[in-house]
């Protein structure tokens, strides 16, 4: 007799457990407000990335088209993948002295692993993270970028302010 009771008990318990699961899915079916889908291209205007989002490495320029990169090459050394190349040139400045300054700060986005060491180690805080994430292009070479804008120059600032910013 026990066998028979257990047999039916098994069936009822099994069916009950199935109903429990169906309650969960049923609940969500009738509560469409719980939907979490983001309709991406449509919500592009409203889409705000977190401020620290690592989209790509950028070199911020101020309104005078000036950046802080001195061309020291520390980011190049610290990049594990060789995705940063720095081309410097030697020019003669107003005082008549030879000065080394940056010609091109080349950034291969296609090789970047977003480890953040270049931004972290930059002594003059010239690099930062950009929020741009739509990097898809048809030609791989378009992923190689020159970070310093054409015609830009090094921002001259007293050493103390540079330190303050760093702190």
């Amino acid at each position: 007799m026990n066998v028979i009771i257990n047999y039916f008990k098994d069936i009822f318990q099994g069916v009950w457990s199935l109903i429990q699961g169906m309650r969960v899915t049923g609940y969500y079916f009738f509560h469409p407000r719980q939907i979490v889908t983001q309709q991406y291209p449509e919500n592009r205007d409203k889409l705000v990335m977190f401020e620290r989002f690592k989209g790509e490495v950028i070199m911020p320029h101020d309104e005078n088209n000036q950046h802080r990169c001195t061309g020291c090459g520390i980011c190049e050394i610290n990049c594990p993948n060789g995705s940063i190349e720095i081309l410097t040139e030697t020019v003669i400045n107003e005082e008549g002295k030879k000065e080394k300054r940056i010609d091109k700060h080349i950034y291969h986005l296609s090789m970047c692993t977003f480890c953040g060491l270049c931004v972290k180690t930059c002594p003059s805080d010239a690099l930062a993270w950009g929020n741009e994430f739509e990097h898809a292009v048809y030609d791989r070479h378009k992923l190689t970028k020159v970070l310093n804008q054409p015609g830009s120059s090094l921002k001259k600032e007293p050493k103390s302010t540079a330190k303050e910013i760093k702190a």
Binding site: Y28, P32, T37, Q39
Partner: peptide
């Protein structure tokens, strides 16, 4: 659509 709604999705749209 049914499975999408059960899974907190929108489904084909």
């Amino acid at each position: 659509k049914v499975c999408a709604f059960m899974q907190n999705r929108l489904g084909p749209n």
